[in-house]
Design a protein around this nucleic acid. Sequence first.
DNA 1: TTTAATTCCAAGTAAAATGATTGGAATTCA
DNA 2: TGAATTCCAATCATTTTACTTGGAATTAAA
Lengths: 149, 149
Amino acid sequence: MKLSTKGRYGLKAMYDLAIHFGDGPIALKNIAERQRISDHYLEQLVATLRKAGLVKSVRGAQGGYMLANEPKDITVGDIIRTLEGPLGPSECVLEDDPTMCHNADCCVTRIVWEKIRISISDVIDSITLQDMVDDYYKIKNKGNYMYYI
Amino acid sequence: MKLSTKGRYGLKAMYDLAIHFGDGPIALKNIAERQRISDHYLEQLVATLRKAGLVKSVRGAQGGYMLANEPKDITVGDIIRTLEGPLGPSECVLEDDPTMCHNADCCVTRIVWEKIRISISDVIDSITLQDMVDDYYKIKNKGNYMYYI
DNA sequence: TTTAATTCCAAGTAAAATGATTGGAATTCA
DNA sequence: TGAATTCCAATCATTTTACTTGGAATTAAA
């Protein structure tokens, strides 16, 4: 019941971009260093995020990535779903395209999975990158050492 | 972000035992048939549940398994945690024994994982096997065909 | 115009996890 | 005594995960 590194690294990278929102293109190498992620691996995740329209890229020297929208308009759910696919603790309750169990209408365990799915969705859809940026400044102003992580 | 078959089959089996609570030992073969699970595989899951004190066994012919406590006193969380280990979307927020990240006190993404973990815990700890049995009879009384699934 | 920095793209790969299967010993009821 | 059952240990094929490797294309700066 864990997220893979796709979702976890992906959110870290998007959060990093949110912290630097408005600063022009940010090179992947720098994000990978700050977040301590293999840059070639992160490249694959960011490619997925770019194809989904969550980030924009600038090629060539001095190039890099930027959020495609304001941090307040990107939710954790957008990012995790893009990288991990439709969410749900079981096939039969996946968002979008549940592999329909032929007993779905009378399956009691399915009711449990559905409740779990909804509770996860509620959380990740309610948190935006801006919320995370706000958290960052809150912690920073308390005097904690921070480095965009 | 899916549960493995351990948690999913395990809950189905425990629900099946809850439906038959008070009927004496239920053979694994019958549970496996009803829930359409490999019986040898289910055996391993039930062994884990037995060691955790959630089910009791009776060996020999006419033997089988029974819930160790009343359905109202066993939660979905008890079952899932026994079979899947401590819950959490990331190592750093696992219940019990989080593999402590050295940046935990200033990690903003960790706040997100923690919220997800709590929302899942809230759901699974609030549902008992008795709730599932109640759901079963509710659906059954509406006239739906049901077979303990 | 060259060079360095970067994104973009496609494969390959080692290790771990998943979801079992196989085979048999021990126990108990009929 | 035999059939039904739990108990136990090992093995295994497949898939997934988390990368690595290698290089082409693009662009800013020297």
